[in-house]
Amino acid sequence: MNRENLIIGIDISKTHLDIAVGENGTLRRIEHNEPNILSLVEEFQKLQPTLIVAEATGGLERILSMNLAHGDLPIVVVNPRHVRNFTKAVGQLAKTDAIDARMLARYGAAIKPDVRPIKDESRQHLADQISRRRQITKMISQEKNRLQQALVKDVSKDIKAHITYLQKRLNAVDSQIKKTLDQSHIFKKTAALLITTPGIGIGTASTLIACCPELGSVSNKEIAALVGVAPFNRDSGFRRGPRMVWGGRATVRSQLYMATISAIRCNPAIRTFYRRLVDAGKKPKVAITACMRKMIVTLNSMVRSNTEWNAHLDESLKHSCC
């Protein structure tokens, strides 16, 4: 086996891991537990693979990917949709865990996905807190909707009590998020920088820090694609289709959307840009999406250059790298 180009594929489930060492190498299954994961780290450090490929599996991949990353191993967690489309393209229609592990190794060899930074423990902690905040906010919204339809007094009283409880929990989670930001000098500094931008609050800043660790370390085009606000062509022959955004990180994008709506009202650069697009005949949703891209590009440049927002920042960004 050529270890200079050794690609390992790992299919992850709740109870076990299927491991394919190379496209045609050994294949085995082990139980999914911490001792086995630590043993894998030691084994892979000896093998020195070029790439280790696993799929995002609803959070089941987190412990494995963090341990491999801490062992200085080239782990990349890929989008399952991409792997499945690749599998169909090469004519592999059958699906088992063993086949999936093989196809992950084959996908890594053919596509060579970039190894991106894995969230460290503190960033993952912050991401979990933000996720919990989002869940509580959703539950409060659901309960308020139910309250509008409640006709029985006892039911209405119970819903109001639950909303009060959830609001207290939301305040507690907000305090925990602030504490997590304050405990990290890097987090605190980045958050302070981001919230100098009109329209960006602590909620958006913490989401970007936790869920977009690449902010400030990649190009403006790359950050727009990562968030899912980069327009992609849809042309064929003589047809020139409308540009569409696709993919990206939904959590970051939804938070950025709300921040952009606020920025259109209070950020002079974004407001002017939005009005210019609408006056030129762009649909409001298209204009908002363009403003979202402008926002994330601005924030990326701010973090990269360690520059606070100012009224003349937009002009300076035109000369920054793309």
Score class of each variant (00 low, 15 high):
residue 73 L to N: 01
residue 162 H to T: 10
residue 163 I to A: 04
residue 242 P to K: 15
residue 55 E to C: 13
residue 252 V to T: 10
residue 76 V to A: 04
residue 303 V to P: 02
residue 189 K to A: 14
residue 103 M to E: 00
residue 133 R to P: 00
residue 210 A to E: 07
residue 43 E to A: 10
residue 215 L to A: 06
residue 237 G to E: 11
residue 263 A to K: 02
residue 175 S to N: 09
residue 148 Q to M: 14
residue 165 Y to G: 06
residue 205 A to Q: 00
residue 22 G to E: 01
residue 31 E to T: 13
residue 148 Q to G: 14
residue 14 K to E: 12
residue 309 W to F: 12
residue 221 K to E: 06
residue 187 F to M: 08
residue 170 L to K: 15
residue 45 Q to M: 14
residue 259 A to F: 10
residue 204 T to V: 09
residue 157 K to H: 14
residue 280 A to W: 03
residue 238 F to V: 11
residue 79 N to G: 08
residue 308 E to S: 15
residue 21 V to C: 11
residue 109 A to Q: 09
residue 240 R to K: 15
residue 97 D to R: 08
residue 76 V to D: 07
residue 264 I to G: 07
residue 170 L to D: 03
residue 207 T to L: 04
residue 85 N to D: 15
residue 152 V to C: 10
residue 142 Q to H: 08
residue 38 L to Y: 02
residue 308 E to T: 08
residue 77 V to K: 00
residue 272 T to C: 11
residue 207 T to F: 00
residue 8 I to L: 06
residue 37 I to V: 13
residue 253 R to C: 00
residue 307 T to Q: 12
residue 161 A to S: 14
residue 57 T to I: 07
residue 232 F to L: 10
residue 128 D to T: 10
residue 111 I to C: 08
residue 258 M to Q: 09
residue 117 P to C: 07
residue 131 S to C: 06
residue 258 M to S: 09
residue 84 R to A: 11
residue 107 Y to L: 03
residue 4 E to Y: 12
residue 122 S to W: 04
residue 270 I to L: 10
residue 240 R to G: 04
residue 315 E to Y: 03
residue 125 H to C: 12
residue 43 E to R: 07
residue 102 R to E: 06
residue 191 A to D: 04
residue 139 M to V: 07
residue 17 L to Y: 02
residue 237 G to I: 03
residue 160 K to H: 12
residue 239 R to G: 05
residue 164 T to P: 02
residue 104 L to M: 13
residue 173 V to Y: 00
residue 199 G to L: 08
residue 315 E to A: 15
residue 74 P to V: 12
residue 127 A to L: 05
residue 170 L to G: 08
residue 210 A to S: 11
residue 169 R to F: 10
residue 202 I to H: 10
residue 165 Y to L: 14
residue 289 T to M: 13
residue 176 Q to Y: 09
residue 195 I to G: 09
residue 67 N to S: 14
residue 198 P to Q: 13
residue 150 A to C: 01
residue 221 K to M: 03
residue 107 Y to M: 07
residue 189 K to Y: 10
residue 126 L to N: 00
residue 101 A to W: 08
residue 205 A to H: 02
residue 78 V to Q: 04
residue 226 L to Q: 04
residue 13 S to T: 15
residue 220 N to F: 07
residue 183 Q to S: 15
residue 253 R to N: 10
residue 199 G to V: 06
residue 61 E to M: 01
residue 60 L to N: 01
residue 64 L to A: 05
residue 14 K to T: 05
residue 303 V to E: 02
residue 38 L to W: 08
residue 138 K to Y: 01
residue 217 S to V: 01
residue 82 H to C: 00
residue 188 K to V: 02
residue 179 K to Y: 01
residue 123 R to K: 11
residue 170 L to T: 01
residue 38 L to T: 08
residue 119 K to T: 06
residue 155 V to I: 15
residue 233 N to R: 12
residue 39 S to E: 15
residue 49 P to I: 07
residue 72 D to L: 14
residue 215 L to S: 04
residue 146 R to A: 12
residue 118 I to W: 05
residue 250 A to R: 14
residue 89 A to N: 09
residue 287 A to P: 07
residue 157 K to N: 12
residue 279 D to M: 13
residue 251 T to I: 12
residue 101 A to H: 03
residue 280 A to G: 05
residue 170 L to P: 03
residue 215 L to I: 10
